[in-house]
Each structure stands twice: as C-alpha cells, then as structure tokens.
Computed example of a mutant assay.
Amino acid sequence: MCAMDRTFEELIAEADAVDVSGWDFSWLDGRAAEERPPWGYQRQLGERVGAAHLHLDIQTGGGEVLAGVPQRASGATVATEGWPPNIAISQQNLRDKGVVIVFDEDEPPLPFADNTFDLVTSRHPVMAHWREIARVLAPGGTYFSQHIGPDSGHEVYEWFLGPKPTGKSFREPALARQEAEKNGLEIVGLEEAELKMEFFDIGAMVYFLRKVIWFVPDFTVEKYRDDLLRMHEHMEREGSFVAYSRRFLIEARKPGA
C-alpha cells in the first residue's frame, strides 16, 4: 500500500516502531529525498584513502560511508565511534575491510599519539575538535571532511520548536577556517552548498526525527502529535514538506615534510 493511501495514525505508528540504529537511511527511499552535494564526498574520500598510509576516520557512525569506499590505506585504517548502538553496526560493516573500530566518546583527547596519521577524515562530525585533529596529524598530513553547515534544515526544527535566530552558529564555514588556522593547519579547499530536502509523508518525518535526534532533541510522537498532524495536513495539501540542508567540504593540511 502506498504511504499516501494510509492514515495519519498508521503512518506515525509504523515509523515510531521501526529500528533507527545505524546511519543507513534506505527506509526513506521513495518517502523522502535530499539533493547530494556537487563535489562527491565519497569518491574524493576514496582517492585520498588510496594514497594514504595511516588513515583515521572520526565519528564513523555505522561505517556505511567508509564501507562504500573501495580503496584502503596501505598501512592501516582506524575508525572512532562514540554511540554504543553504532559500534556493532560499524564492526559488521567494516570488519571485512580490515578497519579497526575504537570506542571514543568524541571528547578530547583522541586516543592516539601525536603525529600519527597522514589522513584524518570525518563525514558530518558533531563537533570538529581542531586541536586534536592537528595533534594526531603527521607533518604534511591532511584533514578531509564534509561538515554540516549553519542552520541546516532549520525549517524542520522551527516547525516543531518555533523561530530560532539564524546565522550565528558554531557550524559557520568561516569559523571552521579560523579554528583550523588557529591550530596551525593550512586550508587547501573550502566549498559550500545548499541542498533541497523533501519529505513526502509524515512517517518519513517521524523516522527522520527519531534518527537525527539533534533537530528536536526531546522528540516523541506523543509529545509532538499535534505538530505532526498539522504537518501531515500540509503534506496532503502541498504534496511534501520542503527544507534546505547546508553542507561544506573542507580540506586542511598540517605543514611539514
């Protein structure tokens, strides 16, 4: 049965019961869509991993992005993750790739020696700890990452939580540049993109908010039932709910041989 043929209660009940562990969004296929950044992060990641000797992937999530990269570092790849449900998933996804998973709660310091890795990567880090990134990079090493940009998807949280000032967050690309340079790194590249997000049924939104918990940190179906019903009616009337995500790609180098 098509999602749009089901009632509000059926859609939210289904989405409230489904497993949301890991970082695989395939459950949303056909129910939500998001434009991809133009730079092709996973492809570029593979190119850099293939040229690296020792590689560290920070906040790997369920390891889905790294698992999709065919190249491997010539020495070793280590990945960190701090959310317990993702540890088992990342081990399952990366074990056959020879990647070592290290539990790390994403609070400094990183559990590695100074000047260790010639490549450090991260896709959508919750927080980039620039001092630690610079510390574990070997001289001449590179940090390559796709970050979540400022006010990303603010249309979603404003629907549930009300208006929020924009343009003053810790996710500004200029702030990332400033912090990287303050910690001795040289910016090699910095690109930005605004990308359309579209949700086609209310179940997709419930799943999204249960999985991406920082949009509405106290989200439950029961607490926000009235807002969900209002959004469901909006989707039926307009065909979808539209928001805009923001991403930036940053590459920084540690000076040295």
Rank of each mutant, 00 (worst) to 15 (best):
A3E: 13
D5A: 13
D5M: 11
F8E: 00
E9S: 10
E9Q: 08
A15H: 00
A17M: 08
A17S: 12
V20M: 03
S21E: 14
G22A: 13
W23T: 14
W23S: 10
D24G: 13
D29F: 12
A32G: 04
A32F: 02
A32Y: 06
A32K: 01
A32Q: 07
A32T: 02
R36V: 15
P37Q: 09
P38M: 08
Q42L: 14
Q42W: 06
L45G: 09
L45D: 03
G46R: 11
E47C: 04
A52I: 11
H53Y: 08
L56R: 08
I58N: 08
I58D: 03
T60W: 12
T60E: 14
G61K: 04
G63M: 08
G68Y: 12
G68I: 10
S74W: 10
G75D: 08
G75W: 10
G75N: 00
V78F: 08
V78A: 04
E81N: 11
E81A: 11
E81C: 09
G82T: 15
G82V: 15
P85R: 12
N86C: 03
I87A: 02
I89Q: 02
Q91M: 12
N93P: 09
N93H: 14
L94K: 01
R95C: 06
V100T: 05
V100I: 07
F103R: 15
F103A: 15
D104M: 00
D104V: 00
E105N: 00
E107F: 04
L110I: 11
A113I: 05
D118E: 08
L119C: 09
V120G: 01
V120R: 03
V120Y: 05
S122P: 00
S122T: 07
R123D: 09
H124L: 13
V126G: 12
M127G: 08
M127I: 12
H129G: 07
R131H: 06
I133Y: 15
V136L: 05
L137K: 08
Q146R: 04
Q146F: 01
Q146S: 04
H147S: 07
I148C: 09
D151Y: 15
S152W: 10
S152N: 11
H154L: 00
V156Y: 07
Y157E: 07
Y157V: 12
Y157R: 10
E158T: 03
W159N: 07
K164C: 14
P165K: 01
T166H: 11
G167F: 12
K168F: 15
S169D: 15
R171N: 11
E172S: 02
E172C: 00
P173M: 05
P173E: 04
A174D: 14
A174V: 04
Q178S: 01
K182N: 02
K182T: 04
N183L: 08
E186A: 06
I187N: 10
L190K: 03
E191A: 09
E192K: 09
A193R: 01
L195R: 05
L195H: 06
M197Y: 12
F199S: 00
F199G: 03
F200E: 02
F208W: 12
V212W: 15
F215R: 03
F215Y: 15
P217L: 13
F219E: 06
Y224G: 02
L229Q: 10
M231N: 10
H232V: 05
M235K: 04
V242T: 07
Y244N: 13
S245C: 01
R246P: 00
R246F: 01
F248G: 02
L249H: 07
L249I: 02
L249E: 07
E251W: 02
E251A: 07
E251I: 05
G256N: 06
A257Y: 13
